[in-house]
Amino acid sequence: MTQDFDPQSRYGRKHAAQLQRPAAADDRADAGRDPDEPFVGWRFVRSRRWLGYFAIAVAFAVVCALFGMWQWDRRNEAVRQNAQVAQNYDHAPVPLDQALPQASSWQDDQEWLRVSVTGQYDVDAQLLVRNRVHNGQPGFEVLTPLVTDTGRAFIVDRGWVPTGNAQDAPDHVPAPPSGEVTAVVRLQESEPRIPGRSDPAESDQVQSVTLDDVAAKVDTPIWTGAYGQLASESPAP
């Protein structure tokens, strides 16, 4: 025979209280939460750790943006320089006195510009630039002053020659054309001095195409803002 459950009995009241206690706790928890707020809540955004992560993310994004802008500027500058070099390389030769009206004249956009200059080579004042490597072989650049009718000389880099077999000097340096010569050259800016390297003891050698140093070894006044890499000569050597 089954005995009916009496909620008013002592045991019934105790059992009912146990059933109601968790529900009451849940009700209190739900009462303190916004019904429209996600379950996880947004209180974590006020924590120091989260704010630190957010600051790092923002800083990283700013650095990436700045780096991207820097790379873009470098790319645009490289494109501009390449276009300028291509234009100057094939440019019709400009007379020297127009390209370089003063002895110290030079503009960055003149690099590789083709220039024509007429005069006579001063072979006695010819200089060698040391430590010039070509295809892995050491050698020298040959600098020969081309004296114009104004009495000023323009320095022409006539090319590269290898180091000699038995001495620290070329075995042979080809002679330039004699008499009046018209040379077409591509302009180059005077090179800076090489830090920590002294001038060679040899009177006919220099450490770099630093035109102020070249001027000290050439009796004739020279153009000091730029020199020229030889493209062609008339008459040919």
Rank of each mutant, 00 (worst) to 15 (best):
F67E: 09
V173C: 12
W70S: 09
T144R: 06
S203R: 07
A201S: 10
P101A: 12
N131K: 12
P177W: 08
W106L: 07
A103Q: 14
L211K: 01
W112Y: 15
I56H: 01
R114V: 00
W50I: 12
T182D: 01
G136A: 11
Q188I: 05
D124S: 13
D199Q: 15
S232P: 10
P35C: 11
A29L: 15
D212H: 08
F60I: 13
P170C: 11
T118E: 09
W160P: 04
Q167Y: 05
G159Q: 10
Q3I: 11
A25S: 12
A16T: 12
W160L: 06
G12S: 01
G196L: 05
Q229V: 11
D171C: 03
V156W: 00
A55G: 14
Q81Y: 06
G225K: 01
A183F: 04
A236E: 10
S9H: 01
R74K: 15
L96D: 00
P170D: 13
K14S: 06
Q71F: 07
R114W: 04
V133G: 00
S232T: 11
A29D: 04
Q167N: 07
R10V: 12
P93T: 10
D109R: 08
S47Y: 02
P162D: 00
Q126L: 08
N135D: 08
V181K: 04
R13P: 12
E37D: 09
A25N: 13
A23D: 07
A25Y: 02
T224D: 02
V173T: 07
Q205I: 04
Y227I: 01
I222H: 03
Q188R: 13
A226I: 01
A153Y: 13
D90N: 12
A201D: 08
D149A: 13
A83M: 11
A169D: 04
G228N: 00
V63N: 07
V40K: 09
C64G: 10
D27W: 09
E189C: 02
A166T: 10
V40T: 02
V147L: 05
S105I: 02
K217A: 10
G41L: 05
D124R: 09
Q207R: 12
T148D: 04
Q110L: 14
W223D: 10
P145D: 05
L143F: 08
V173K: 09
D171N: 11
D124N: 13
P176R: 03
R49D: 08
G159D: 05
L51W: 06
Y11K: 11
Y53V: 09
R186T: 04
V123A: 14
Q188P: 02
R21P: 01
W160H: 06
N76E: 10
R49M: 09
K14V: 10
R74M: 08
D124G: 08
P93H: 03
E180I: 14
V173M: 12
G228R: 00
A215P: 15
A166V: 14
A55H: 02
R193S: 11
A226L: 07
A92G: 08
S9L: 07
G52S: 14
Q3D: 14
A55Q: 09
V40L: 14
G159S: 06
Q102N: 03
A24W: 03
S203Q: 08
A83D: 12
A215M: 02
T224Y: 05
P145A: 00
G68E: 01
G228H: 00
L127F: 02
